[in-house]
C-alpha cells in the first residue's frame, strides 16, 4: 500500500507517519510532500493508494489539491488530517470528494478507523 502524507510541518508529517504505522500500516510505503502543489505532481507521477493531507498549507492548500485532482479526473482517495474542525470545513471537504477527516489532535485509533476501508 502506498500512502502519501502532505503537510507543511515536518513535525506533523513525522507524527502522522508514526500513527499510520501504529494503526497497523507499518508495511506501507510512505512518502511525503510539503504542500498541495508538490503532492499534485507526486500523485501524477506515481499514483498512491491514498493521500493524507493537511488543509492549511502554503503554495497550495489541501482543498485546492483535492479540487485539482478531481478536475484532472484523478480519483485517488484523499483524507484530511487537519486542525480545521468546523462543520463548514467538513461540508466543503466532503462536497469536494474527501474520503474522511481526521481532526488534530488525533490518536492511532482515528487512523485505524479511517484507513480500514482502504487496506
Amino acid at each position: 500500500m502506498k500512502i502519501l502524507i502532505v503537510d507543511d510541518s515536518k513535525a506533523m508529517r513525522a507524527i502522522v507517519r508514526r500513527h499510520v504505522s501504529q494503526a497497523g500500516f507499518d508495511s506501507a510505503e510512505v512518502s511525503e510532500c510539503e504542500n498541495g502543489q508538490e503532492a499534485l505532481e507526486a500523485v501524477r507521477a506515481a499514483r498512491p493508494d491514498i493521500v493524507l493531507s493537511d488543509w492549511n498549507m502554503p503554495v497550495m492548500t489541501g482543498i485546492e489539491l483535492l479540487e485539482s485532482l478531481r478536475a484532472e479526473s484523478i480519483d485517488v482517495p484523499l483524507g484530511f488530517v487537519t486542525s480545521e474542525s468546523s462543520d463548514e470545513f467538513k461540508e466543503r471537504a466532503f462536497d469536494a470528494g474527501a474520503a474522511f477527516m481526521i481532526t488534530k489532535p488525533f490518536t492511532a485509533d482515528d487512523f485505524t478507523r479511517c484507513l480500514a476501508p482502504f487496506s
Partner: peptide, 26 residues
C-alpha cells in the same frame, strides 16, 4: 516547527468556539 504546529493545532480547535467566523493564518 513543533511549536508552530502546536499553535496551529490549538488555533484550529479554538476557531469553532470563537464568537464569530474567522480564518487561520499559517
Amino acid at each position: 516547527d513543533a511549536l508552530g504546529e502546536l499553535a496551529n493545532m490549538i488555533a484550529g480547535n479554538v476557531k469553532p468556539l470563537l464568537p464569530a467566523a474567522a480564518s487561520l493564518s499559517l
